[in-house]
Amino acid sequence: MNTIPYGGGVHSTALLVLTAQGHIPYDAFLFAKVGDDSEHPARCPSTTTVCANPAGA
């Protein structure tokens, strides 16, 4: 299984979109929210939206 750590930034989002479009082969993108103080609160809603619909990102 090929996986990518997804952090919600520009580079991992670009990899997510390229995978959704079939340009690169990855099986899973892993995002872990490890606590309420670990991520900026504004990032979490956009991360959920992009992960739910990567082709529309």
Score class of each variant (00 low, 15 high):
residue 29 F to R: 00
residue 47 T to Q: 09
residue 18 L to E: 04
residue 10 V to W: 08
residue 47 T to E: 07
residue 13 T to Y: 03
residue 57 A to C: 13
residue 23 H to F: 13
residue 51 C to M: 15
residue 5 P to E: 07
residue 32 A to T: 10
residue 15 L to V: 06
residue 30 L to T: 02
residue 10 V to C: 12
residue 2 N to K: 14
residue 24 I to W: 02
residue 26 Y to D: 05
residue 36 D to V: 11
residue 44 C to K: 12
residue 37 D to P: 02
residue 5 P to T: 11
residue 38 S to Q: 13
residue 28 A to H: 04
residue 13 T to H: 05
residue 49 T to L: 13
residue 11 H to V: 13
residue 25 P to C: 08
residue 32 A to R: 07
residue 35 G to H: 02
residue 43 R to V: 14
residue 39 E to V: 14
residue 52 A to G: 06
residue 21 Q to T: 06
residue 38 S to N: 11
residue 46 S to W: 14
residue 16 L to I: 06
residue 45 P to Y: 06
residue 52 A to Q: 09
residue 42 A to T: 09
residue 19 T to G: 01
residue 24 I to V: 15
residue 48 T to R: 09
residue 8 G to P: 10
residue 49 T to K: 12
residue 19 T to H: 03
residue 16 L to C: 11
residue 18 L to Y: 01
residue 44 C to L: 15
residue 34 V to E: 12
residue 31 F to G: 01
residue 21 Q to E: 15
residue 24 I to K: 01
residue 8 G to A: 09
residue 46 S to Y: 14
residue 28 A to E: 12
residue 2 N to M: 05
residue 56 G to S: 11
residue 6 Y to S: 06
residue 55 A to L: 09
residue 18 L to M: 12
residue 14 A to G: 05
residue 11 H to I: 12
residue 21 Q to P: 03
residue 28 A to R: 09
residue 42 A to M: 05
residue 54 P to S: 10
